[in-house]
């Protein structure tokens, strides 16, 4: 297994003394769909900001493709190209009144050829369904539209790792499934996708690998079907068991479901296993 990002005993505290990360070590497998879950304030965003060199660890190390980050300016540029972050609040990310300008920002900074940039902008606009918004001003967009523009702006940089901080928070179910679909497509093309989420059902059906963060520490990690069966971890991190898994375990207990090749992760898979 290749690990694209690794952290080693990461410590970080904010100026007010809050210890956001404590001796945090984790390995992100390449080309997978990763979810980081945990309560508000558990350190997810802080961790993400370390991944592309916005925050520097107060102690500990971060490795990108087994190379220790040294924070030289050339390397930082490279890291920020390869690790893209979509922030939770799109209003913090969209700086321009024009959707087109905003999406072009990252690629222009990378110094690509203008023709190439225009082609890429068009491509990501189509991918994120924002093509119709290109003549609209940012402040006339709905929250969901802003969110998709924010995703397009990061996608345009062609990152190897795409991090999305709560990509579906505040979105309606249609937008949510569109975004998850988009993330699946990206992943199929080889991008490592990392999301944070509070929606356990979504994480369970989507993620390949899950990290549980609690008060700045990784308290558990693993495949979702194993991790979500660990009652102790769920209790410690205040997490809810995904309903598909909960139901499946209940039905198994009652002898109403068959044991399939895989543990069901969606409603349809579960229905197929009911006797």
């Amino acid at each position: 297994m290749n690990y694209i990002l690794k952290t080693e005993k990461l410590n970080f505290s904010y100026m007010d003394g809050t210890k956001a990360l404590k001796e945090l070590s984790m390995k992100i497998p390449e080309g997978k769909k990763i979810a980081v879950i945990g309560n508000n304030g558990s350190g997810k965003t802080t961790l993400f900001l370390h991944f592309n060199g916005i925050h520097r660890p107060q102690s500990g190390n971060i490795f990108y493709r087994d190379k220790k980050m040294s924070y030289s300016s050339g390397e930082i540029k490279n890291i920020r190209k390869n690790v893209g972050i979509v922030f939770q609040d799109p209003d913090n990310q969209l700086f321009s009144g024009s959707v087109y300008q905003d999406i072009s920002y990252g690629p222009v900074n990378l110094g690509w050829d203008e023709k190439e940039i225009r082609k890429k902008i068009e491509e990501v606009m189509n991918q994120t369904g924002t093509f119709d918004l290109k003549d609209k001003p940012t402040h006339f967009l709905s929250y969901g539209q802003k969110k998709r523009v924010a995703i397009a702006g990061v996608l345009a940089m062609n990152p190897e790792v795409m991090i999305l901080d709560e990509p579906t928070a505040g979105l309606d179910p249609v937008f949510t499934s569109q975004i998850m679909e988009l993330l699946n497509d990206l992943n199929k093309k080889g991008t490592t996708v990392i999301i944070s989420s509070h929606n356990m059902d979504e994480v369970f059906s989507w993620a390949d690998y899950v990290f549980v963060l609690s008060q700045g520490e990784i308290i558990s990690e693993g495949k979702p079907e194993e991790l979500f069966r660990d009652a102790e971890v769920l209790k410690k991190a205040n997490l809810k068991k995904p309903w598909v898994l909960d139901m499946y375990d209940y039905l198994l207990n009652k002898g109403l479901a068959t044991v399939g090749d895989n543990i069901p992760r969606t409603r349809e898979e579960l229905l197929n296993l009911i006797k």
Binding site: Y100, P107, N109, K134
Partner: peptide, 21 residues
């Protein structure tokens, strides 16, 4: 927050963008 998000898209002191044609 804006600075953080600009930095993560490669901000190096000035804002350069492309306009539609």
């Amino acid at each position: 927050n804006l600075l953080q998000s600009l930095e993560s898209r490669g901000f190096e002191g000035n804002i350069k963008v492309l306009n539609p044609e």
